[in-house]
Write a protein that binds this DNA or RNA. Sequence first.
DNA 1: GAATATACTACACATAAGTATAGTATGTCA
DNA 2: TGACATACTATACTTATGTGTAGTATATTC
Lengths: 208, 208
Amino acid sequence: MILSTLTALTYRQQQLLSYIETTMAELGYPPTLYEMAKAMGDITVKGVKDHLRALEKKGYLRCQPGKRRAVEILQGRLFRGEGIPVVGRVAAGMPVLAVENIEGTLPLDPKFAGGGRQFALRVRGDSMTGVGIFEGDYIIVRQQETADSGDIVVALLGDEATVKIFRKKGRAVFLEAANPAYPDIPLKQQTPLPKILGRVVGLYRTIK
Amino acid sequence: MILSTLTALTYRQQQLLSYIETTMAELGYPPTLYEMAKAMGDITVKGVKDHLRALEKKGYLRCQPGKRRAVEILQGRLFRGEGIPVVGRVAAGMPVLAVENIEGTLPLDPKFAGGGRQFALRVRGDSMTGVGIFEGDYIIVRQQETADSGDIVVALLGDEATVKIFRKKGRAVFLEAANPAYPDIPLKQQTPLPKILGRVVGLYRTIK
DNA sequence: GAATATACTACACATAAGTATAGTATGTCA
DNA sequence: TGACATACTATACTTATGTGTAGTATATTC
């Protein structure tokens, strides 16, 4: 997302790009050349095509020759993505991302949080306020089964998912809260054995 | 985004929807019926069309009759949007959202943070850690020029944008930090007069 | 002047891509 | 059984939509 390395656009090119972006944001698919021509004040489709060619040359979009409505925006204020599935409850023995567990989508591009296989959870409780994770926050979790000491992880304890700091001290492995009111949880004395579901890589909060 | 009120899909319908979503996430535009037919294991376009009709009837998508590649997803894991412009610096006398100030886009759907006219800023400093706003966080700001007491606002002091809690006590109006190391800033004794740029409505953080 | 970029016009052509017709087969429910 | 839903087949037709040709006009640079 580096704007400064792209060639500047003329007024008309910017106008066309903006129209395409607005249509795509609104409908989810690009306009046809004819629709663009109408929107640009009744110019011809040839005129539009020449602008598209210039925009393509400058790196803003890509057209598939011959294909209808096949305009891909490469640079601009639009983004698209699959969002991050919000998991409602996690049951032992079931894949986290099973359809039954999904209760919605966090409309954020997973690539912004580093990509990989991700899910989101709503935080319950105040055990992690010391590191700025509050009740009601969405945490974004990259699925992985191992962690380094100091990582914030989501672990499955019995049938309960919990967010804590993963710590290794010598041979001891435990989960540490970021709130002194909560004691450390050793990982090796639980039955069934706890399982790391992933590492926390991002957070979203709606304020007030 | 309420999944439970939608009619359940058959396996094949879900498969088609998933293919459409994946293509749109990847390319930014929908596949043609022919492409869908290929992807579904070489069935006919008529077969695909019947599935699309069922998906439309169930509320998952909408097709424009006769238009090429005009499939709009209404429900699913896909989202689209214009993102939230990230403002790099704010200069007095200039609109916040002037093109020159924009240094990128936060790929989050603005509607998720309540909509309205929004911009994002990167937080510098630690004056708001008491409310879980940390250095490096993106805060999402809805543009407005007034605030209620207790709102977290972005205000322009001279040429510097600052994030604080807006407080009204009797006739006194000031900006309060959420960190005791920072003193209150009275609003009525500044030259030039400070200006509220907006209210903080959301926060995003990448972790580690 | 020539070359290039930008911003268009007019029109005919070409084809990518959806629609329609007429089905078959299987499963479920009243 | 009949009605409806689902999941397809085959084929011809129709048209929405991009491409190509041949330009004009203006501005800038060498």
